[in-house]
Design a protein around this nucleic acid. Sequence first.
DNA 1: CAATCGTCCTGCGGGC
DNA 2: TGCCCGCAGGACGATT
Length: 274
Amino acid sequence: MPELPEVETIRQDMIKKVKGKKIENVEIKNEKNIRIISPEQFKEKLKGRVIEDIQRRGKFLIINLDSDDLLIFHLKLTGRLLFSSVGKEEPKYVRIVFTFTDKSRLFFADIRGFADVFLIPRSDVETIPAIKNMGPEPLSPDFNPDKLKQILGGKRGKIKPLLMDQSVIAGIGNIYSQEALYRAGIHPEREVSKLTEKEIEAIYRSLVDVLKEAIKYRGSSVDAYLDLNGKEGNYVPHLKIYGKEGQACPRCGSSIKKKRVGGRGTYFCSKCQK
DNA sequence: CAATCGTCCTGCGGGC
DNA sequence: TGCCCGCAGGACGATT
């Protein structure tokens, strides 16, 4: 499941590998993921376009073209973007093939088919509600403990589902919300309105640290995530709590618990996280 | 108004 | 060994 660090890894690799390339052809093998416009229009508007830049907003990958349009991907659980130089064989689960004029290819693949693909005019980006209503970027220079206090202030509910709410803060999913709370020593079910200033500062620090560290290691290949080169990320061995039910807490040694919080499997140490 | 549930979907793992 | 069942989950809409 690609979260901020995984999408950012793909973005950085795409800058190196596909920026500046011109799309010669688009083949749609399965049109299911294409939102809003028709597959025919999707193809037509992309042919001949040059990829000028690749940006990220939360878990959205936003590709700037040399036209009025943006090509936007949300990989959801099992979406992949895979680059292939000339002659390499096609990966599994491919749904859209972008062939560039130098014959290299970018594959959009998706196992479960939940991912979203948009092609919309730049000026219409706010018509995607998830982008319009998205909270601040946790790694932006102007994000700080005061800002986190401000956005959590007045909110009610459990801290973990709130950290995963994209309208509260951008790009955090099931893995990194848990890792951050473990590092901060905060129980995932803590009522957010009862957190102290010090605790919110600890959550801020943990969030920023874990996201930066995960980017450094090219993300976590939990579930289906692969990078642009089709390789797994290297961060899984560094996860401290995710997926470790019954194993010893790295800090205190007591058994790691698993519980559904906000409908999602959540791992925590009941001794270290209060 | 927060919490939960159903929905989309398919690979995989547990159980027998 | 092989089959079947059910779980996993990002985001959204509907319901409690």
